[in-house]
Amino acid sequence: MIGQVPLDEPMLVEPGMAPEGGEASSTGGVFRLIFEVFIENRLAVIGIGIVIFFVLFCFVGPIFYHTDQVHVNLNIENQGPSIHHLLGTNNVGYDIVGRLMAGGQTTLEVGLAAALLATTFGVLWGAVAGFVGGIVDSFMMRIVDALLSIPTLFLLLFLATIFTPSVPLLILVIAFVAWLVPARLVRGEALSLRTREYVQAVRGMGGGGARIILRHIVPNAIGTIVVNATFQVADAILLVAYLSFLGLGVPPPAANWGGSLANGVNYVFAGYWWQIWPAGICIVSTVVAFNFIGDSMRDALEVRLQRR
């Protein structure tokens, strides 16, 4: 009997080359190549820098810059920037810098968690639909089509109106509308991947559908997934901002950038720029940063664009 290459052992491949099918395995060379392509994109590096900055600002900043973001202080409402309040205070006396930190935590948490949840669910949905095919595929994708036909903002407003907003709910609501895109993308990949020889081989050796999907199809669509996930984060942050701007974000005293911006806009004629610009800059910077990263990830993971 001819010996079989153990499925759980790395295949013999040339250094720096992706395995030709089979179960995806890590090779330092591939990642090095991806990394090299990635960092060639200056905007991506800037994007990474911005994201790191905001993560540190929001999660480490409060350790050094102490503010009370739970209790209002009407005695210092609407004050301009000063040594005591670097970016001034808002209409109920919250320090703006502290508010941006607290709001950034919520925004980033919701954005990242919603993107992760949407990507995970969407990938599995699309992979199953694409792999199984036939009537199951048709049924599953018609559900996707039906949900895609509903305007996102309308659906978000509807859901956020029915339920009392909270961080977990915002994550669920945003993920509920965001999973459709990765589902379609991965389904397209799965339709192609399921015909590959290594998938046939797994079938021939008695491998089940779950194993094929989780160990072969999903890992081999990882490029598409990762690129989409970065855009998902950016989109989710924007959606959080939309909802909060419309008054459907997390209730006070919790903060988020969209809510801070919406609150600041009430004072646009009063000239309280410090209540508008910082929150707006935070939202725009973070969204642009994730888009930079996504663009570069696409360059790095897309075979046709790679410099080999």
Partner: peptide
Amino acid sequence: GVTTVTSEMEALQSSLSTIGIKVTLSQ
């Protein structure tokens, strides 16, 4: 939709929290 009402409710919520009366606001 009314900024003064929102501010007032935030102030009340904050005030009540200092004696452990937790108020969850919604609009």
